[in-house]
Nucleic acid binder design. Structure first.
Length: 910
RNA sequence: GGGCGGUUAGCUCAGCGGUAGAGCAUCUCGCUUACACCGAGGGGGUCGGCGGUUCGAAUCCGUCACCGCCCA
């Protein structure tokens, strides 16, 4: 016997273990089945399950389970990425608690420590994904630092380097002074901050007492100024172009240059140029250098920890007049000072010297490191870059040609926009945890890129003609570099494995729009370059999970909902069903406890429907009875067929919400509300058709379980085993249902739907007229000339059901011409009289009828007007005209019926 | 400043050229032998504003407003 209530946490873990241990999640490369593959976007090894994960993995699991049941060889590839910065930060924090730094420990020992952490605490999320029910093929779990995946990284790096698509260069990069590493453009977050605009006077050379005034948001960088730029057509400054100003404090002469990119409206229209600490200034210096013979210097005045450094100013010239503005002692005092402290010191000093004109409040965007949260310092450093532009072109073409399809399609725009303006990708990181860059340097700095040290040594021997000492590059690669290879590195590449041949390209990538660039774009680039084919056919982009007010969930805001707590309380199925039902196309999902609570009863409903079946001797049937002929059998089989078709159409289109809705509607509004209710009378009295109806019910219950299994796998699996549809834990492998449509099913469907409408009408009348619940009035039936035969017959067949569900005493057929006392109804060409004389308030009923007569009249008038317009008849399609006419005719009939009823009521009253 | 998305019942959202829908909430009635996490019935919307296209617009086009996101 099924328990009175379903208690998810009592069964979920056992069911999951059974699936996992029985190999139900395992892909089978040797099978003859058509593969269906999804690569999990590997979560961060330091991560733990949050609602965003719950969303993305629920949707992926729905797709995987559905396709697996359809008989596909499903591969859902699990794993985690090594998350260079995040993991290093975690372990450094642990060390700090012991009073240690990674530098004290040394690289080798530190890495050993990280591995130790990874083995013990890493990958917590893979355990949590099991709680969610995710049917990942765990035996194939990968980690981006696995030997195989690392070999793939080296192969890709070396290949691209030899093709000239990876190169080393000294460039301005986004430097994170807290983490002391370069980061890519994508890891920079532009935040709007309230800052200031400082207006500073720079003395003009050769004209004592005259100045040029500049405005800046970063006065501390003035130490590294090499020019002042004005717009070439700015009348205020035209005369100054080509002359020189004096950089105060530093005491250097710098030119006033013209650059059309200067915004004349902003500040004073004159800007200081600091090429070593600003991307725009760097570009301006480049432009200047190309137009002039003598290049501008590019002194760095801030170091890797964000402190002032004066070393690079030392070599720069300083002559007599400028030297007068040289502030030697003050300058020396800045050495090693933190950049924001230096800002304050410099502003104060400028003010003392009468060079600070004013300070204005200023709202501007400042780049911050997305991990560290500190302002980025643009810094000139040696880094490795990937030529993203060249790699992007085939990826862009693949989407343009439809070889990879975005769902919803609008995300293509985002993808194209980024691809069009793509910048060189800085792939080196000044970290220890990650793939060490496979490049070695000779004594003279010559670089040897190779997959192994031996290979590099061989290259060096050839180059130098002798054995020399080599030093490997200290840096590691961006984590996303290895993630970009995931769709093929996990399948064994660069080896030509059977898996690689079979599962690449994958079918669909499911992810959020926030990582289209990190993931989708980079996997496309690498996949196309190395596999010569796209990594996935479809990219399904879902929204972000937000709280009930539409705010992003974050720990600092304290508005996070912990999926594990929800699973503990309501069960994984309730969470999954809520998510699935809420996953409309291209929208963020507002999630709250209340929302999950409101969907949970659906699980309970399924449970109780199953209990009803069990109590009534219904057993699991995997096939519909071959000779099913009772109209209720035919009707429910037809309805199930519609539900199956709706679910398939929804899932094919990635419409998870419609899939959930179709299942919900079929189970609740059709199977429970009508089918099971219809069954009560014949089963209770053991009618002749009871045996057939039991078998059909057992079969349709199985259809429901199979249809719902992808989204609510635990409760369905539990019931599957309980009813003996198959062995315990085998629903996951059961065949996806096919519509079963015996002869006559559609006709029966229409007739039974008519009976359902009739019962609904009677219930409405009863409620509207306050007929006492215990009253059992008589229903009289008077078939009209155009009565639908099937419907009329069905009223006879389902008489006991109608009596029960409409709470009637008897049903009588009357002869034409007979009166129909009471309330008159008109349906399917049949007139019905509900004899409620004496049970109702005649005046109230008269009022009700008049009101509905008014409504009908309004509607009929609208349709009549429409039909009266010649344009409508001439231009609208014939079927629309016919439909409108039919609707009007229906309305007229209803109006007639009400008129008749009113006359009868008047007689009753009189 | 440029781009994208949104604005439909009290709330959350479908619908995207031919009768305005769902879930939740609300109101009335009901412990009818699966389920009160239930059953039955009801109320509630000039589909953000304006203009246009069309026989017909929530749906297509233009424009404005407000909200959100991305990029400068």
């Amino acid at each position: 016997m099924l328990a009175k209530t379903f208690v998810p946490h009592e069964v979920e873990e056992a069911i999951y273990a059974r699936w996992e241990n029985s190999g139900a999640f395992a892909a089978d490369p040797a099978s003859g089945k058509k593969p269906f593959t999804i690569m999990i976007p590997p979560p961060n090894v330091t991560g733990s399950l949050h609602m965003g994960h719950a969303l993305t993995f629920t949707l992926q699991d729905v797709l995987i389970r559905w396709r697996r049941m359809q008989g596909r060889d499903a591969l859902w590839q699990p794993g985690t990425d090594h998350a260079g910065i995040a993991t290093q930060m975690v372990v450094e924090r642990l060390l700090a608690a012991e009073g240690l730094s990674r530098e004290q420990l040394g690289r080798e020992a530190f890495l050993a420590r990280v591995w130790q952490w990874k083995e013990q605490s890493g990958g917590e999320i893979t355990r949590q994904l099991r709680r969610l029910g995710a049917s990942l093929d765990w035996r194939r779990e990968r980690f981006t630092l696995d030997p195989g995946l690392s070999a793939a990284v080296r192969r890709v790096f070396v290949t691209l380097a030899r093709e000239g698509l990876i190169y080393r260069a000294r460039r301005l990069v986004n430097w994170d002074p807290k983490l002391k590493t370069a980061i890519s453009d994508l890891e920079v977050e532009n935040r709007e901050v309230k800052g200031h605009l400082w207006f500073i006077r720079y003395p003009l050379a050769g004209e004592a007492g005259r100045f040029i005034e500049v405005a800046t948001t970063r006065p501390e960088t003035m130490l590294g100024d090499v020019a002042i730029a004005v717009h070439p057509e700015d009348a205020r400054y035209r005369a100054l172009i080509g002359r020189e100003a004096i950089l105060p404090l530093v005491g250097r002469r710098i030119p006033v240059i013209a650059d059309p990119f200067v915004d004349r409206e902003k500040g004073t229209g004159a800007v200081k140029i600091t090429p070593a600490h600003d991307f725009n200034d760097f570009a301006a210096a480049d432009r200047y250098d190309q137009a002039h013979g003598t290049p501008l210097p590019r002194p760095s005045v801030i170091d890797r920890e964000g402190r002032i450094t004066l070393a690079e100013l030392a070599g720069l010239s300083r002559d007599g007049e400028a030297a007068a503005w040289f502030d030697a002692d003050f300058l020396a005092s800045l050495e090693g000072m933190e950049r924001f402290a230096a800002r304050a010191a410099i502003v104060a000093r400028l003010e003392e010297r009468g060079l600070l004109v004013k300070v204005e409040d200023h709202l501007h965007t400042v780049p911050h490191g997305d991990r560290s949260g500190v302002p980025i310092e643009p810094l000139l450093t040696w880094q490795w870059f990937a030529d993203a532009k060249v790699l992007a072109a085939p990826a862009e073409a693949a989407v343009r040609e439809g070889r990879t399809r975005f769902v919803p399609q609008m995300w293509e725009n985002t993808f194209f926009a980024w691809m069009r303006d793509i910048q060189p990708w800085c792939i080196s990181r000044q970290l220890w945890w990650g793939h060490r860059i496979p490049a070695w340097y000779g004594p003279d700095g010559q670089v040897f890129v190779a997959e192994s040290e031996e290979e590099a040594r061989a290259l060096a021997r050839t180059a130098y003609g002798e054995e020399v000492a080599l030093r490997q590059d200290e840096d590691v690669l961006d984590t996303w570099f290895s993630s970009a290879l995931w769709p093929f590195s996990t399948l064994g590449w660069p080896d030509e494995t059977p898996e690689l041949a079979r599962y690449y390209p994958t079918d669909v990538l499911v992810t959020g729009f926030d990582i289209i660039f990190f993931w989708v774009a980079r996997m496309m680039m690498m996949g196309l370059h190395f596999m010569k084919d796209v990594p996935f056919r479809d990219v399904y982009i879902h929204g972000l999970v937000r709280d009930e007010r539409g705010q992003k969930m974050s720990k600092t805001k304290g508005n996070v909902i912990d999926p594990l707590a929800i699973i503990e309380e309501f069960g994984a199925d309730a969470l999954r069903f809520t998510i699935c039902a809420a996953a409309g196309p291209g929208r963020d999902i507002k999630l709250s406890r209340a929302r999950i609570e409101s969907q949970r009863p659906f699980i309970t409903k399924l449970w109780n429907a199953a209990r009803f079946c069990e109590m009534n001797g219904i057993r699991g049937e995997t096939a519909p009875p071959a000779a099913a002929s009772h109209p209720l059998s035919l009707w429910i089989l037809a309805a199930a067929g519609r539900a199956i078709a709706a679910a398939n159409a929804a899932l094919e289109a990635y419409r998870f919400d419609e899939y959930a809705l179709a299942c919900h509607h079929f189970l609740w509004d059709v199977f429970c509300d009508w089918f099971l209710e219809f069954l009560k009378s014949p089963l209770t009295r053991e009618a002749p058709e009871a045996a057939e109806l039991r078998r059909v019910a057992g079969y349709v219950l199985g259809v429901v379980l199979r249809l719902l299994h992808p989204v609510i796998p635990f409760v369905t699996e539990n019931l599957w085993g309980h009813f003996g549809f198959g062995a315990e834990g085998t629903l996951i492998r059961a065949p996806w249902p096919e519509p079963a449509a015996p002869a006559g099913a559609e006709a029966a469907y229409g007739a039974v739907e008519g009976v359902i409408r009739l019962i609904g009408e009677i219930r409405s009348v009863r409620a509207a007229l306050n007929v006492p619940p215990a009253a059992r009035p008589t229903l009289r039936i008077l078939p009209g000339a155009d009565a639908e035969g099937g419907f009329l017959g069905m009223i006879g067949t389902l008489e006991e059901q109608i009596l029960r569900l409409a709470q009637l005493g008897t049903i009588e057929r009357v002869q034409p011409g007979a009166a129909l006392p009471g309330v008159r109804l008109e349906l399917g060409g049949v007139a019905f009289g509900l004899d409620v004389a004496g049970l109702i308030d005649v005046a109230a009923e008269t009022g009700r009828l008049r009101e509905s007569a008014r409504k009908l009249a309004r509607e009929a008038e609208k349709l009549a007007d429409k039909l009266a317009r010649p344009d409508f008849r001439a231009r609208a399609p014939a079927e629309v005209v016919a439909e409108t006419e039919a609707r009007l005719a229906d309305l007229r009939r209803e109006q007639q019926a009400i008129e008749t009823s009113l006359v009868q009521l008047a007689a009753l009253a009189g």
